[in-house]
């Protein structure tokens, strides 16, 4: 993996200047990995023998990734439930649509719950996706109780023995404890009917260092099991996802690369790491 070919060439040629190291630091910082991690990598590069730098960095970065399974779970005897959570505007509803499309392509039956009863027209937004993708969407009244929508959907999914139930929730800042409690309640209510198998935290690739606190608090409230990193079709590198995975051990499971339902990819570590500093 030739991450830093330019710098490496110079190091090998014995002609690195302060400017080269600065460029290297810039690339690391620009990825949103965080200043501390960036400094660690620079240290590592300075410490390593010139022909081993590449491998050393690659190994270090890979070691920050977790060994956890990156696939969606599947239960053959009951519906598998997937809860979608995250701060406002990260792409939860769109990611829900993408997951529907992905699962349907794999010949699974899907039911969706529109548990964002708060944001104006959020239910309509998901309903539009539902009709485009031909899946049923369970909805409730505007400003109603999101947990009861989730409960109703779980009951339906169980009765009809649907393969997957996906629950889209309202965006909420992790600092609002009332809203975080609400999320915990949604989870507990679903669990009265079906176990919650997967909780996906949707993180926007443009997110800066605040992403780490976000992940920690969401983890505390609803036991997040995976990340969806969205908007990777933009210019942001999405290094915050690696920082989250390193810090919290939550595996990145999917990458969002656009606004249509097909724009979802399974996480590919090598491609991701390569993209971080390009």
């Amino acid at each position: 993996m030739a991450l830093f070919s330019k710098l490496l060439q110079k190091i090998r040629g014995g002609s690195t200047s302060a400017g080269d190291w600065q460029e290297f630091e810039e690339a690391l910082i620009a990825s949103d990995l965080g200043a501390k991690s960036a400094a660690e990598i620079i240290e590592l590069a300075k410490r390593s023998k010139s022909d081993e730098i590449d491998t050393a960095i690659t190994n270090a970065l890979s070691a920050w990734l977790s060994n956890a399974n990156r696939e969606l779970p599947f239960n053959s005897d009951r519906p598998t439930t997937v809860l979608i959570v995250g701060v406002n505007g990260t792409g939860k509803t769109t990611s829900t649509a993408k997951l529907i499309s992905f699962l349907k392509q794999n010949k699974h039956s899907v039911l969706v719950a529109a548990a964002d009863t708060f944001r104006a027209a959020a239910v309509e937004q998901l309903a539009t996706w539902g009709s485009r993708l031909e899946v049923d969407v369970v909805t409730g009244p505007a400003n109603g109780d999101p947990a009861s929508v989730a409960f109703e959907a779980a009951t339906k999914a169980k009765a009809a023995n649907i393969d997957y139930l996906i629950i889209d929730t309202a965006g909420r800042l992790h600092t609002k404890s009332g809203l975080m409690d609400e999320l915990g309640k949604i989870r507990r209510v679903i669990e009265k009917v079906l176990p919650v198998d997967e909780v996906l935290l949707v993180v926007d690739a443009t997110t800066g260092q605040n992403g780490i606190v976000q992940a920690k608090i969401f983890m505390e409230s609803v036991a997040v099991t995976g990340l969806i990193l969205t908007k990777m079709d933009g210019s942001a590198k999405g290094g915050i996802a690696l920082a989250i995975e390193r810090e919290c051990g939550i595996p990145i499971k999917f990458i969002g690369t656009g606004e249509s339902a097909a724009d979802l990819e399974a996480f590919d570590p090598e491609r991701y790491l390569n993209g971080l500093f390009s």
Binding site: L173, T175, T206, A236, I240
Partner: peptide, 30 residues
């Protein structure tokens, strides 16, 4: 909440459409 990409994207909009002022959202977070 945006990170290091802020500059690149702001520049792209600045050069693309141009803007006169900025509005910061979601400042109720931390």
């Amino acid at each position: 909440m945006v990170g290091q990409d802020a500059v690149r994207t702001a520049q792209a909009f600045f050069e693309g459409v141009g803007f006169d002022a900025i509005v910061l959202t979601k400042l109720d977070g931390d």
